[in-house]
């Protein structure tokens, strides 16, 4: 089947991986490397940084990520449906034709309901 057509993709993947890696290692030859404690500080507009950033952090994008995963899977269903739509039109059963619209409607309403919670975003 199409496995042969993926051979260049695999080679491309290897080259694409080596390209940034090679660039990073090549720059070692050219750049100075004199770390000082002041240089290695976390950048905070010249202030001495306070505390850490990797803390427990209530941030509000979690809901978006959750819905995103659901939508991503749903989008795949829709993609298959789009491929099959021409065949579905000729089939007689209205259930096969229109059940996807029910699915779409439920998903849409549920998404909007879930996002009600995230009306205000602070960060």
């Amino acid at each position: 089947m199409a496995l042969e057509s993926y051979v260049p993709v695999v080679i491309f993947a290897v080259v694409a991986l080596l390209f940034p890696l090679g660039t990073f290692f090549a720059t070692r030859l050219f750049r100075p490397d004199h770390p000082t404690p002041l240089k290695d500080l976390t950048y905070e507009c010249g202030e001495v940084p306070e505390g850490e950033a990797q803390i427990q952090f209530h941030f509000q994008y979690y809901m978006f990520a959750l819905i995103f995963v659901i939508f991503d899977v749903a989008a795949i269903f829709l993609l298959l449906w789009a491929f099959a739509w021409g065949g579905l039109l000729t089939s007689a059963s209205p259930v096969a034709k229109f059940s996807i619209f029910l699915f779409l409607g439920i998903m849409f309403v549920a998404t909007q309901y879930a996002l009600k919670k995230e009306e205000v975003i602070q960060i």
């Binding site: 427990q56 952090f57 941030f59 979690y62 990520a65 995103f68 995963v69 991503d72 795949i76």
Partner: peptide
Amino acid sequence: LVYAGAVPVLFVFGIMLT
């Protein structure tokens, strides 16, 4: 698209909540 792109992001978001 789904597993490598989406699910780890969800995990990382979840980890940051804990």
